[in-house]
């Protein structure tokens, strides 16, 4: 039982990285990025290409990719997604859905439909044992990164001027403009940060397992479920939601190898019925 809990939590750490960017974008802009999973897969493939092209280690390759991801996210929000924002959520849903299709076809064209992975070297197989439980170093590292990312995001929101700006434009865009803020820029900064997390998640996913162009929608589903379970716009809530999802899936996998994903969806449904606002709704400073 202890091993199931541990493996579930470690899986949840990866799901948290899938979901934090989504939580950030929703928290600041009320924008649901339906291409989240595809961007993660795109990040994974770009990590594979970066490492192959530069000969860097996967860790260093990701460090190169992350600032570029910020720029890509910034530009996407500034020049595309900002024009979809408004009272009606439909334009942003349609545009990100379109992006999802474009990314999947781009990946099929460039990388083919074959699954690929990022060779992580010895760390991929490294593990240690506590009594009779074996813990992989890579899943543990991923969990640690997810925890750190959640802490840093929460600290950014709570204690920095940029975080105040994020919360202010989220609360009242017009009043924030009266303070001298330019929401278009603030939104672009938020998406830039979300894309740094997306690149990180993509790289780690490609190290953990193989990725294929059509994987995005399933990752979106996990990200979306984690955000909803935790409560829209709450980072600690997103982490808890992701951990619960990972845990529930792991329990399902143990009962029957085909039940893991289904168990996760079931738990999501139960939370939706009992507590539709999520466990920890809305980030507060």
């Amino acid at each position: 039982m202890t091993e199931i809990i541990l493996q579930g939590l470690l899986l949840g750490g990866l799901y948290a990285l899938f979901a934090l960017g989504q939580s950030l974008m929703f928290g600041v802009m009320r924008l649901t990025n339906t291409a989240q999973g595809d961007f993660i897969i795109l990040g994974g493939f770009f990590a594979i290409s970066t490492v192959a092209a530069t000969g860097l280690s996967p860790g260093l390759g990701l460090l190169v990719l992350i600032p570029l991801a910020f720029l890509a996210g910034y530009a996407l929000q500034r020049f595309v997604l900002n024009y979809t924002l408004g009272r009606d959520p439909l334009p942003s849903l349609v545009v990100t859905f379109g992006l999802s299709i474009i990314i999947q076809n781009f990946l099929l064209e460039v990388y083919s439909a074959d699954p690929k992975s990022l060779e992580a070297g010895s760390i991929a197989l490294a593990s240690f044992s506590v009594s009779d439980i074996t813990v992989g170093i890579l899943p543990l590292l991923t969990f640690g990164i997810a925890l750190l990312a959640t802490m840093l995001l929460q600290a950014l929101f709570s204690y920095t001027s940029l975080g105040r700006s994020f919360r202010a434009v989220s609360d009242d865009r017009e009043a924030a403009q009266l303070m001298g803020l330019k929401p278009a820029i603030v939104y672009a900064q938020a998406t830039g940060i979300a894309f740094m997390l997306i690149a990180l998640a993509g790289g780690l996913q490609a190290m953990r397992t193989t990725i294929a162009p059509a994987d995005g929608p399933l990752l979106l589903l996990f990200a979306f479920e984690a955000v909803i379970i935790g409560g829209m716009g709450s980072f600690w809530g997103t982490l808890v939601g992701a951990l619960l999802l990972g845990l529930t899936q792991q329990i399902g996998f143990r009962l029957d190898p085909g039940w893991g994903i289904w168990f996760g969806h079931l738990m999501f449904l139960v939370v939706l019925v009992i507590r539709p606002q999520g466990l920890f709704p809305k980030t507060r400073g």
Binding site: S161, R164, R167, A168, D171, D172, A176, K282, G285
Partner: peptide
């Protein structure tokens, strides 16, 4: 039109 998720001091800042 205060910002509800900000404290008094944060609103002033």
């Amino acid at each position: 039109r205060l910002f509800p998720s900000l404290t008094v001091e944060e609103n002033l800042l």
